[in-house]
Amino acid sequence: MNALHFRWFTRMHARLSLVALTALPLAASCADLTVIHDGAGSVPLGTYFGHLVAGVDQPGVLPGTKFPLATRLKPGQLATSKLGRGLFEAQWLAHPIFVLGTDILSFQWLQLHRQTLTEMGASGLVIEASSEADFKDLQAFAGGLSLAPVRGDWLEQKLISAGIAVYPLVVMPDGRISNVPGSAGVGGLQ
């Protein structure tokens, strides 16, 4: 497999993983869910049947996505002394994800870490946006990084239960949570 094919495969895998994560809140709102397996390490089936994320060049976001996207989390820094288990079980993530909003701190954080996030193949989950236009502005500013709006409180509850009340942050596939992409737990949970 040459480098071009590997890069394409890696990006597609990253986007499919992001699509799977963004579908999780949709599964919680479905009235007629069918449980295929419910045991240790299982995740909702909605994780695997995601919807496509509209690209920056497309006029809209996802059909049915309603704005504003709101969260109880606030823009800020993770406590450096905070330790705990990762946000997700390691086998759930195939690549890093980052969580942010459309506030000024998120834009500054993205500008500072955009190159590293791109090199890592990370995908973004937007948990706060006042309007579709704000989301599309952030998507354009992301410079090609995949971003998806997150509606619902599943991700918010996972973050809060892990003792996290702030964003932006990055979650590594091994479960490390940090303000600094690629760091070994500096500035966050490990």
Rank of each mutant, 00 (worst) to 15 (best):
H51L: 15
H51N: 13
H51F: 13
L52G: 05
L52S: 11
L52V: 14
V53A: 08
G55N: 08
G55R: 12
G55W: 06
D57K: 04
D57S: 12
D57E: 13
G60P: 05
V61I: 05
V61M: 02
V61D: 03
L62E: 14
L62A: 14
P63L: 10
K66S: 12
K66V: 14
F67W: 12
F67I: 09
P68A: 09
L69E: 09
L69A: 10
A70K: 10
A70P: 00
T71R: 05
L73A: 08
L73Q: 02
K74Y: 01
K74S: 12
A79L: 13
A79Y: 04
S81M: 07
S81E: 13
L83Q: 13
G84D: 07
G86P: 09
F88M: 01
E89M: 08
W92Q: 12
L93H: 04
L93G: 06
I97R: 00
I97S: 00
F98R: 01
V99F: 01
V99R: 04
L100H: 02
T102Y: 06
T102D: 07
T102G: 13
T102M: 05
I104A: 15
L105F: 08
S106F: 06
L110A: 11
Q111D: 15
Q111H: 14
L112E: 14
H113C: 04
R114Y: 06
Q115I: 11
Q115R: 13
T116R: 11
L117E: 07
T118R: 11
E119Y: 00
M120Y: 02
M120D: 08
G121H: 05
G124F: 03
V126K: 01
I127M: 04
I127Q: 06
E128V: 10
E128N: 12
A129C: 11
A129V: 05
S130F: 02
S130A: 15
S131A: 08
E132W: 03
K136C: 04
K136N: 07
L138Q: 09
L138W: 06
L138I: 06
Q139C: 07
Q139L: 15
A140L: 12
G143C: 09
G144E: 11
L145V: 04
S146T: 06
S146V: 04
S146C: 04
A148F: 02
A148P: 05
A148L: 05
P149S: 07
P149F: 01
P149Q: 02
P149Y: 02
G152I: 12
W154D: 11
W154A: 13
W154M: 12
L155D: 04
Q157M: 09
Q157S: 15
K158T: 00
K158P: 00
L159Q: 11
I160D: 04
S161A: 15
S161I: 00
A162V: 01
A162K: 12
G163H: 11
I164N: 01
I164T: 08
A165D: 14
V166I: 03
V166A: 10
Y167H: 08
L169A: 01
V170F: 00
M172I: 00
P173N: 06
P173D: 08
R176N: 03
I177A: 10
I177N: 02
N179V: 03
